[in-house]
């Protein structure tokens, strides 16, 4: 019994050190986000009063356009993905038709094309279409990438659902469209949620594409926008860290309330890889 306790104590102490080391930059960020520059230098390692919440007001002014654009891009990318992926996945999972395997292989093959290696030709295409420096140019690649990923994971999920559920509906005279809308979509909610979260994570982590395709400041999504914001606020430590906090909040909220789906989204790479 005491040996278990000793193991717990040693492991707990070591894990506390690791957890603290990993969280330290974020703790420092939150504490320093409410200091003015004088407090930043005077009490570098400790919290300081009074709190300067006006740092957040200053940061909000600059970061809120990036947040807004990120929400718009993520929202429309999710809408576009969900308009295409579930129906296609349903067809691949539940119908037999000539060319099914070939067509599916064509889609799955795209998982092996990293977005960065197609960045140059995709940029030229968007230039030829005349949609550089718009929100649309940011949305389209997310729809493409998540439709591919979505079809692959949703097909697997939909294929393993028991046929009896759908058989009963068909006997009652429901057509394919009704079976899809009334039975498949509600059943596929977990995997739809995972794909939606993957989309949000993609928007919040895609750095090069918005950096290169967009010049208008308000069209920047968080990654490129925040890097720009950091260059605009050199040595303004309080507002700088407040801006980082504001940019992080949406993902932190998602992580808090949907941690299971969030982690599934992060591990999506593995799911899609195999």
């Amino acid at each position: 019994m005491s040996r278990t306790r000793r193991t717990n104590l040693v492991a707990g102490a070591a894990l506390s050190v690791l957890a603290f080391a990993g969280l330290f930059p974020y703790l420092f960020m939150v504490v320093a986000s409410v200091k003015d520059n004088e407090q930043f230098f005077a009490s570098y390692w400790s919290p300081a009063w009074p709190l300067h919440l006006e740092n957040y007001a200053a940061a909000w002014e600059q970061v809120s356009p990036y947040l807004f654009t990120s929400f718009v891009v993520a929202g429309l990318a999710i809408a576009g993905t969900l308009a295409l992926a579930p129906a296609s996945a349903f067809v691949f999972a539940r119908y037999r038709f000539p060319g099914r395997n070939t067509l599916f292989a064509l889609i799955a093959a795209l998982l092996m094309v990293p977005s960065i290696t197609s960045l140059i030709p995709l940029f030229v295409l968007m230039r030829d279409l005349g949609i550089l420096d718009s929100r649309l140019v940011l949305i389209v690649p997310h729809i493409t990438a998540n439709t591919v990923f979505g079809i692959v994971v949703m097909r697997t999920y939909m294929a393993q659902l028991p046929e009896e559920i759908f058989e009963a509906a068909r006997v009652d005279g429901a057509g394919g469209i009704r079976v899809f809308l009334a039975f498949m979509l509600p059943l596929a909610r977990p995997v739809i949620g995972t794909v939606a979260l993957m989309t949000v994570l993609g928007v919040w982590n895609d750095y090069f594409w918005p950096l290169l395709t967009v010049q208008t400041d308000a069209y920047r999504t968080i990654p490129a926008g925040l890097a720009f914001f950091a260059n605009q606020n050199v040595q303004q430590w309080g507002p700088l860290f407040a801006g980082y906090v504001l940019a992080s909040l949406p993902l932190v909220v998602l992580f808090t309330f949907l941690s299971k789906w969030f982690l599934a989204g992060i591990q999506g790479g593995i799911v899609s890889g195999k």
Partner: peptide, 10 residues
């Protein structure tokens, strides 16, 4: 795993 909740750019 809490740091995973923050954007990579942050």
């Amino acid at each position: 795993i809490l740091p995973l909740a923050f954007p990579a750019v942050v």
